[in-house]
């Protein structure tokens, strides 16, 4: 009997917890995304990334040239 009551209480507790989780609104940056301004951030990050990549490619090229001149 005790076990049944205990498991019943557990189930209730779990239900309350899950309800509490869905009900409490977790604040997310939905406005930022819907207003479209997030794209500005993406643009900035993409520019930095592409810039760095171009820089790396030039270094790569330079080393390749050096390797070739050594072999020659």
């Amino acid at each position: 009997m005790k076990k049944i009551i205990l498991s019943f209480l557990l189930v209730i507790n779990g239900l309350i917890c899950s309800f509490a989780q869905t009900n409490a609104e977790v604040e997310m940056a939905t406005d930022f995304r819907s207003s479209g301004k997030i794209y500005v951030v993406i643009l900035v990050l993409a520019i930095i990334l592409i810039g760095l990549a171009i820089y790396l490619f030039t270094i790569d090229r330079k080393i390749t040239r050096l390797e070739k001149s050594r072999k020659a």
């Binding site: 409490a24 977790v26 604040e27 997310m28 997030i38 951030v41 993406i42 993409a46 990334l49 592409i50």
Partner: peptide
């Protein structure tokens, strides 16, 4: 690039404490 775009735009679960 995909990581930046999908990472910022893609859907994520709304969790307490960590949020975005």
């Amino acid at each position: 690039l995909y990581g930046i775009i999908a990472g910022l735009l893609g859907p994520v679960p709304a969790l307490p404490i960590v949020h975005e």
